[in-house]
């Protein structure tokens, strides 16, 4: 007897495409939250596959902290051009200028938390009822409890103790005025799945993910890239290092890893052997044991 069999990557791909199409069908104004990181790049790739030969039927939304790696912006603009998709950008700087957000001070200052203000304002302005994000359940313990379709109340709050049960693939997108959903098509993917999929699909990535030389400083367990946005302490002297980034967020809080991995295959080997989670390189998660849970409740990505 002949058995039909889908490999794990194809099952994950099919599941993600199903979720993306479901979001397009059940909502009026979805957006895809695009950060320039590998997960949002994979999401965009999947959205392209979900609707081709039609264009992606919703815009990408980038919340720009002003502290981006220049490579991220260049990659983003090329991608948007290639796919013919609409891009909306909202700036954290505007929120600060309008007095809606206050800049943090000190050596560990970051605009990570401030993004939530800009994000929620943008969702309201664009009348967004579904924001698709690239978050994965394997990233962090609070994210392990997320639904594919995650309800947010009129204050954009996540109520982890009172989530709607999610059965089979029957997604309940019913909402009252003012409420919205966060949609997570990559829920069941792990970091390794993402890399294996990037290899299988030959998806182009910003070169930040590959080994390169760069001026960096060591702070605690972290290696941070020297930039205009990074406040250097007196005793900190930048050094030339051979590094790559496992995740890409703001320059102020994304840690690099020392790595010679120059190709996707090298990275897959490195990730498979890695003994530290990728969010271990993120200063934003290290603020407290429940840093992610607290931010998510308030409406963070």
């Amino acid at each position: 007897m002949h058995y039909y069999h889908l490999s794990h990557l194809h099952q994950l791909e099919s599941e993600a495409i199903f979720v993306i199409r479901e979001a397009a069908a059940q909502f009026e104004h979805p957006v895809l939250l695009f950060s320039g990181g590998k997960d949002s790049i994979v999401m965009t790739h999947l959205a392209y596959k979900a609707f081709y030969p039609a264009r992606i039927p919703f815009p990408l939304l980038h919340i720009d902290t002003g502290h981006n790696f220049p490579e991220t912006i260049e990659y983003r603009d090329n991608l948007v051009n290639k796919l013919g998709v609409r891009l909306e950008v909202r700036f954290v700087q505007d929120s600060i200028d309008k007095g809606r957000a206050t800049e943090e001070k000190g050596p560990n200052a970051s605009r990570n938390l401030l993004q939530t203000v800009t994000l929620l304002d943008a969702l309201e302005e664009l009348k967004v009822d579904a924001a698709l994000g690239g978050a994965r359940r394997d990233e962090e313990k609070a994210r392990a409890k997320e639904r594919f379709f995650s309800h947010r109340d009129e204050f954009s709050q996540w109520d982890p103790k009172n989530q709607r049960p999610e059965l089979w693939y029957l997604f309940n997108a019913r909402r009252h005025a003012g409420e919205h959903f966060r949609i997570f098509p990559l829920s069941n993917w792990t970091e390794l799945d993402i890399w294996q999929y990037i290899a299988m699909e030959k998806i182009e990535l910003p070169n930040l993910y590959f080994s390169h030389e760069r001026d960096c400083i060591s702070r605690g367990n972290m290696i941070l890239a020297k930039s205009d946005y990074l406040y250097l302490r007196e005793d900190e002297k930048p050094q030339r290092m051979r590094v790559r980034f496992r995740t890409i967020g703001d320059m102020t809080c994304t840690g690099a890893v020392l790595s010679p991995a120059a190709s996707i295959d090298d990275i897959i080997i490195e990730v498979a052997a890695s003994r530290v989670t990728e969010r271990g390189t993120r200063a934003d998660d290290k603020r407290s044991e429940t840093a992610m849970e607290d931010r998510k409740k308030a409406g963070y990505f």
Partner: peptide
């Protein structure tokens, strides 16, 4: 350790 060799992970089941 988890597989990283392409031939094997392309055929992994879920």
């Amino acid at each position: 350790s988890p597989p990283f060799n392409q031939e094997s992970y392309l055929n992994m089941e879920l």
